[in-house]
Simulated assay, not measured.
Amino acid sequence: MLFFLWATMAAAQENVIGIMASNGCVNCHGYEGRGGTIGTIPSLQGRSKEFLRTAMLDYKHNVSRGTVMNRIMKDVDDRKIEVLAEYFSGIK
């Protein structure tokens, strides 16, 4: 029983870390990254972790060009990119 309590608390803590890391993302991508209400802003929720990580790194390193994503991602460290990819890929 104690193991399940610990596992639940660990999962909740990871979720909080993802939620806190994603605070700026929801301004455009919507609640839990479920999609923006403006124009062509894509949904992030449920996409593969690899896709999200690659997309963010591509914006960070100017491989992909976006309207604001290059400026947003340029100072984001790789650990936060990993946290965001994990968080958004886990939302169903």
Rank of each mutant, 00 (worst) to 15 (best):
I38V: 10
G33V: 00
F88C: 00
D58Y: 11
R53M: 07
V76F: 01
G36H: 03
I81E: 03
K80C: 09
M73A: 15
N70C: 09
A85R: 01
D75G: 07
H61A: 01
K49H: 07
I91T: 06
L84S: 03
G36I: 02
N15I: 04
N62A: 10
V63Y: 09
D58E: 15
V16I: 13
G36M: 02
S89P: 02
A55S: 13
D77K: 08
R47T: 05
V16S: 13
M73N: 05
S89I: 00
I19Q: 14
C25W: 14
A21N: 12
K60E: 10
W6M: 04
G24Y: 06
I72W: 05
N23M: 14
E50Y: 00
R34C: 08
M9V: 08
F51E: 09
T37S: 14
A21R: 06
P42G: 04
G35S: 08
E50A: 09
V63M: 09
A85D: 05
G66K: 05
N70H: 06
L44I: 04
N27M: 13
V26Q: 13
D78S: 15
T40E: 11
T67V: 13
G18Y: 04
C25V: 08
L52E: 00
W6T: 00
M69H: 05
I41V: 15
T40R: 11
T37E: 13
K80S: 12
Y59P: 06
D77W: 10
H29Y: 10
N23T: 14
G35V: 02
E14L: 12
D58H: 14
R71D: 12
D75Y: 07
T37R: 12
I72R: 04
W6F: 12
C28T: 11
I91S: 08
L44A: 11
A7P: 00
E50L: 02
Q13L: 13
L84N: 01
S43V: 06
T37Q: 13
V68H: 09
H61S: 07
D77C: 09
D75H: 10
S43I: 05
F51T: 00
A55T: 13
G33W: 01
G39H: 02
F3L: 04
E50F: 00
L57M: 13
G36S: 03
C25L: 14
D77G: 11
G66N: 06
M9R: 12
D77V: 11
S64G: 00
T40S: 09
N70P: 08
A85N: 04
G24W: 05
I38N: 05
S48Q: 01
R34S: 13
G39F: 01
Y59W: 12
V68I: 15
A7V: 03
G24T: 12
N15E: 14
M69A: 02
E32H: 10
R71G: 15
A85H: 05
A11M: 13
D75F: 03
R34Q: 13
M73L: 14
T67E: 11
G30E: 07
V16L: 15
F51N: 09
K92C: 03
Q45I: 01
D75C: 01
H61Q: 09
S89G: 05
